[in-house]
């Protein structure tokens, strides 16, 4: 038994080391690196057709029949359930004050906010924060790793994927019986898709290559989250110093800054 346990632990450590290493190796590579594109693209296309034929129509009908305040309540409820994972990652990132605030927020909204449906904390002085394990690895200096497109789940990366484990384990819904958690999760998925309708509308109007557009949007969104919406301009400007008289591809990167 003891041996079995330590074996499990060593596998975990090995896995963590692998993720850390791949993260470090690829942190220098920017932009279009996508070694798994041959696998990612078919998965993206599969997800996309599933979305077009099933998820998007359901989300549209859901929006049509559900008043906005109700949808906001549902969004609040599910956001609140993810909050234990947010608090864990506040702590892992050394944001102790924010971790304290977020704990207070979770307690206030779970109780006074009717199980998270209302957001009294947010109307007070405890705004919502967005943290996850991928962001934690990012703040520790890890690069994106390898870009992934997961079946059903969509854009992800080797740095961000481990969060699927912690966010599932720390979500109270996980510990309810399937008969309860399944239909509730279904509502979560439909509501989540509905919240993305504007974003996908914009993508469909603007993108020439939906896959490339989505990948770039994912990367920038993640980077923005890692820096809590404020990535340092100076860091991005390093690329600009390479500019010559006739700028080539590596030039003017700082115009692309995300802030």
């Amino acid at each position: 038994m003891e041996i079995k346990k330590s074996k499990k632990l060593s596998i975990l450590i090995l896995l963590a080391t692998f993720i850390l290493l791949t993260g470090c190796q690829t942190s220098a590579a920017r932009d279009d690196s996508d070694p798994l594109e041959v696998i990612n693209r078919p998965i993206f296309n599969f997800n996309d057709s599933l979305d077009r034929h099933i998820m998007k129509p359901i989300a549209n009908s859901y929006v049509a029949i559900t008043p906005k305040p109700v949808r906001t309540g549902i969004t609040n409820f599910f956001d609140n359930l993810t909050y234990l994972n947010v608090i864990l990652n506040d702590i892992l990132q050394g944001k102790f004050a924010q971790g304290f605030d977020d704990s207070a927020r979770f307690i206030v909204n779970s109780t006074v906010g009717f199980g998270g449906i209302m957001d009294p904390a947010g109307h007070g002085t405890l705004p919502k924060h967005d943290e996850d394990l991928g962001q934690t690895f990012g703040t520790w200096g890890m690069g994106e790793g390898v870009y992934l497109n997961l079946p059903l789940l969509g854009p992800n990366s080797t740095r961000d994927a481990p969060d699927l484990v912690t966010s599932t384990l720390l979500n109270p819904l996980t510990y309810f019986a399937f008969a309860i958690s399944a239909p509730v999760s279904a509502i979560n998925i439909v509501n989540k898709r509905a919240n993305l309708l504007d974003a996908t509308k914009f993508r469909d109007e603007a993108a020439l290559d939906s896959y490339a557009f989505t990948r770039e949007a994912y990367r920038q969104h993640r980077l923005s989250l890692i820096y809590d919406g404020n990535p340092p301009v100076e860091e991005m400007e390093d690329f600009f110093d390479e500019e010559d008289e006739y700028p080539d591809d590596s030039s003017a990167e700082d115009i692309l800054i995300i802030e």
């Binding site: 557009f213 980077l223 923005s224």
Partner: peptide, 22 residues
């Protein structure tokens, strides 16, 4: 204006990535 960054997402980067694929 040479770039618009809306909600943390740079318009130039998006288009650059999108168009270069084509």
């Amino acid at each position: 204006i040479i770039n618009v960054i809306a909600d943390g997402i740079s318009d130039l980067s998006l288009k650059r990535s999108d168009y270069s694929t084509i």
